[in-house]
Write a protein that binds this DNA or RNA. Structure first.
Lengths: 160, 160
DNA sequence: TTACCTGCAAATGGTTTGCATCCCA
DNA sequence: TGGGATGCAAACCATTTGCAGGTAA
């Protein structure tokens, strides 16, 4: 990307994401403040869901309580999605509506989480499995999450 | 099942599970106490992963700290598996080695979690997806968890 | 007779909340 | 200029840990 080194946004998708976020907040009489905008921007730039402390280390200058509050508010309006991975840490990412449908790779050693997009035929198989589960279980299945658990390249002794 | 109404075990699988648990503990110089045995029995009898308070309500007479300690110890020797569902509650179940490979249905309203077994062809598709992810991502994928999220019959307004 | 196990109570740590202040629509 | 937003510090709550008995091998 040839974008500016500064904090200016890359126009295309990011602007759209900001527009959606602002609209969603306006809908409930809330404001798209600079802190919230920075948060959304940060979540967009990352390659996978981030923990609170990763967000703070990543340059967020909001207080911890504001981070939690804003993430909760953005989650309520469907802009942010909360993820709890096997290592028990809570992470946040943009909602699939904004980031596209995907799944996660989780490192069982360091807790790192990366996004993973499945091929269409696997997604189709999952959708059919969801239908079948709806029919046989009494649950009305609305979504599915797949987590592939393993060891990332940094933690894999075989790779080193 | 025509087993006794009392607390006597059903011989078949449960005995095997107790045997495995006892052996695993012995391997690390630990004891299969009555509290641990009761815990394993309780986890076996339930239809899905249970929370600490469900275990306590379900008749466990161990102290809370012993419950946590024993679940951690049993997890370390591969008898118990910890699950964190979307609603943030930590749950425990017998490991897949003892309960068989399965996935979970989660009610996004009440947090209830039920076991779900997928058809072989879906499992095959997932295994292939895991292979592909291993090849393309740098992660060495060792396991996968699928969570179907929806509304259980008790919480579904359409069903009522 | 040494370990291991248990229960109680205190400590921990991530997350939430109360409150006073700040600030934008 | 009023209602939301923020920061700080205190509160909360699930989980962990220290310690002083118990208990089994």
């Amino acid at each position: 990307m040839a974008a500016s080194e500064l904090d200016l946004e890359e126009p295309a998708e990011v602007d759209h994401i900001h527009d959606v976020a602002a609209a969603r907040l306006r809908g409930t009489r809330q404001r798209y403040t600079s802190g919230r905008r920075a948060l959304v921007r940060q979540l967009h730039d990352l390659h996978g869901p981030a923990t609170i402390s990763e967000l703070q280390d990543g340059g967020s200058d909001s207080s911890t309580s504001s981070l939690y509050r804003n993430l909760a508010i953005l989650e309520q309006c469907g802009v942010v999605h909360r993820v709890v991975a096997v290592d028990d840490t809570t992470r946040y990412e943009l909602s699939e509506e904004l980031s596209g449908h995907h799944h996660h790779l989780v490192c069982r050693n360091c807790g790192r989480v990366a996004d993973l997009t499945l091929s269409d035929d696997v997604e189709l198989a999952l959708a059919r499995a969801a239908d079948q589960a709806s029919r046989t279980s009494g649950f009305r299945v609305a979504a599915h999450n797949l987590e592939m658990v393993g060891t990332c390249e940094d933690c894999d002794p075989e790779t080193a």
